[in-house]
């Protein structure tokens, strides 16, 4: 039997081998970095209508009065995302999906249907899975929001991510984060779901690549592992 222990005895200075950038550790770190990069306080205020830069909301408001009279002035909303408070400058009609991508750089929630049908943009708000494409950002103030980045960065959910990868519950991968978020929301409220309960909970997520049977396998495996790990 050949293995590292009995092979080439006496060789001590083995070269560290470069591994794929896509492991759980690396992607978890990337997710944490994406969350960490969100500034808690806004210091720059670009005019959404003409892209001019201001350094206070007061100056931007004044600019609106002078240059864009009659237009709705954007406002600062404080969001609590993935355990972190942050200010965002949004217009009243902005959806949370749009804010996540274009203000916070969180791109795990995906745009597929853009009208609350496909589940690709799912996030968790106050413990419930919610479609961020049909949720206004201004409605989210004071609520706790978890995105797939927050799940990826949290070691507690490693078994779920591992199981998704082990069962290959993805093909093109575009809708996958939405499924993972729905799965996490399910496991939060039901740590031991049956296959039927999983189907029910994930029936709002649409995959066109034929992965449906794999999600239940992955989620049930993750549930067992998380239960065993306490």
């Amino acid at each position: 039997m050949i293995n590292e222990e009995n092979a080439g005895k006496g060789a001590v200075n083995a070269v560290p081998v470069a591994k794929s950038p896509f492991t759980h550790a690396s992607t978890s770190a990337q997710a944490a970095a994406a969350i960490g990069a969100i500034p808690p306080v806004l210091t720059e205020f670009n005019c959404p209508l003409c892209n001019k830069l201001y350094y206070s909301i007061g100056d931007l408001t004044k600019h609106y009065e002078e240059c864009h009279p009659g237009r709705v002035v954007p406002r600062i909303v404080v969001l609590h995302i993935n355990g972190k408070d942050c200010e965002v400058l949004v217009e009243p009609h902005w959806t949370l999906k749009r804010t996540l991508q274009f203000r916070l750089g969180l791109t795990g929630a995906k745009h597929m249907c853009d009208r609350g049908v496909c589940g690709s943009c799912t996030v968790i708000i106050d413990g419930r899975p919610v479609l961020s494409c049909t949720t206004l950002t201004v409605e989210c103030e004071g609520k706790s929001i978890t995105t797939v980045e927050g799940i990826a960065a949290d070691p507690k959910w490693k078994p779920l991510i591992d199981a998704y990868c082990r069962w290959d519950a993805m093909q093109c991968g575009y809708c996958t984060p939405g499924f993972v978020v729905s799965a996490k929301a399910l496991l939060d409220r039901n740590p031991h779901p049956t296959e039927e309960e999983i189907k029910e909970a994930l029936s709002g997520n649409i995959c066109i690549c034929g992965t449906y049977p794999r999600h239940a396998q992955a989620i049930m495996e993750a549930a067992l592992k998380m239960s065993a790990e306490g």
């Binding site: 794929s20 992607t27 797939v148 990868c165 082990r166 290959d168 993805m170 991968g173």
Partner: peptide, 26 residues
């Protein structure tokens, strides 16, 4: 079977960056 793909983690965690995810200043 059950061999995670090299890209599986990127997809499952939302770290896989699709073209339309790009947002640039200005």
């Amino acid at each position: 079977p059950n061999l995670p793909g090299v890209l599986s983690y990127a997809m499952a965690t939302g770290m896989a960056k699709f073209g339309l995810d790009h947002v640039l200043p200005g």
